[in-house]
Write a protein that binds this DNA or RNA. Structure first.
Lengths: 237, 237
DNA sequence: GCCTGTTTGTCAGCTACTGTCAAGATGGCG
DNA sequence: CGCCATCTTGACAGTAGCTGACAAACAGGC
């Protein structure tokens, strides 16, 4: 796993020295910096805003800025949820349909962030789809989330290690949600986010038959016209 | 659409002055630079290799390097296919199942690149999944490809403009293929790439029923517990 | 009111990347 | 063969993102 959602503090820092009070203060500072940054981005555009600008607006040195956010991009991507440990966020209960749980959980998270500050979510999301570098990191972060879920769910339902079905399903689910969020953002948040989410997932479920037909068609159309042998993988040193 | 797959030459440059000979020479230079770069990456690692190193190995100034590749990342991502205009690459014929055509086309492209130089594809792919920045750009490029296809297919089958079904299906297809390629790379190319591709798509088609059940479960579990109103979208200026 | 650990600013430095401009290579054409 | 127009290249200077190191300011607990 290359890296988690967003950042990763250098020190484990959990039951560690950092007091709970200091932690919350840190979060409040982050929120304030983010707010200033987003204001500047809206004013002058992302590229035209330098980190120095942001730091200045937030009344700190740029060096300090980087102590809060590992990169300029992260100012947009960051979220309260990135603060909590991953396990807490995506706890899958055994027994019940894990996929359904996942969907519900994602809905809850979106609903929560949305409800705390709709405009904030919209601004961040627009930037996440608009600015190429951020878009790339955003998609990466989303799709990388599949990894951790995967392990949990695989354990829960006892899927084999090398199964393709589960990762493919999760990836499909995630991309459906990404499509929904993209549309929400493109319509300036005028449509209901949760409704779009549900619709996208429903659309995915509905496209099942199409896909089955298509796979058959493709197979009939002469699957495996070329048969390359696997790479020799001649690494020894 | 933020940007195309990889780069974008400043000038239209199609039936333009640049002679066909110069164009091919340019491509050969790119291939040579890429080769040198990949060699260095394998030696010292991506981060430890500076652009100056690459330029030096390729017997050019770093300024010239950037005339060939817009960024260091692009050295890994670049491909002959990025050289041809998009239309040529993904021509969808009307009538036949467009999804099936798409699948076949992607298979062909992979097969082509693979067959020309298996090791090269494997090296590039490994870096594309391993180095965070490249991974992000890679996923972004892949998922962004959906856009152009989408328009074409929508026209071909006469899908409505605001349809969710088609984009969601395409995204699912693409992510299935990404999963397949990821697995191929993780196994050092020891498995057959095209076979993995087919398997992943088959797995996607097979997950249809799961998804349908899950959607029902999720819906029953109390879809829409919160009902946020759409954002006011109060932009006027 | 001191003592310890955290937070901050300054400074110096690296790397990716860009604009500019003049010098050099190239290819077409007479 | 040689010249001109055009494309390509290198040198130079500069910007922005980001990092390490260190010392000063700033907590909070006793």
């Amino acid at each position: 796993m290359p890296h988690q959602t967003i950042s990763e503090d250098p020190e484990p820092n959990s039951a560690n020295g950092t007091s709970d009070l200091r932690q919350r203060k840190r979060i409040r500072t982050k929120q304030m910096v983010q707010k200033e940054a987003l204001r500047l981005f809206a004013d002058k555009g992302y590229d035209q805003t330098t980190v120095d600008d942001i730091a200045h607006a937030a009344a700190m040195s740029s060096r300090t800025f980087f102590r809060y956010f590992p990169s300029k991009e992260d100012v947009v991507l960051w979220d309260e949820y990135d603060e909590r440990p991953m396990q807490e966020v995506l706890q899958i209960r055994p027994g019940e349909d894990p996929l359904a749980q996942l969907i519900m959980r994602v809905r809850e998270i979106f609903a929560d962030i949305y409800q705390k500050d709709p405009e904030l979510l919209l601004t961040r999301t627009k930037l996440s789809f608009t600015v190429p570098e951020i878009r790339a990191r955003f998609l990466n972060a989303q799709l990388t989330l599949i990894g951790p879920y995967l392990a949990q769910i695989a354990d829960a339902i006892g899927a084999p290690r090398d199964d393709l079905q589960l990762p493919v399903t999760l990836a499909a689910l995630y991309s459906a949600m990404i499509i929904a969020v993209e549309r929400w953002q493109r319509h300036d948040g005028r449509e209901d986010l949760l409704r779009l989410l549900d619709d996208a997932i429903a659309a995915l479920a509905a496209s099942a038959t199409d896909l089955r037909d298509t796979v058959l068609t493709a197979a009939a159309a002469g699957t495996r016209p070329t048969k390359p042998k696997a790479v020799a993988a001649k690494r020894k040193s």
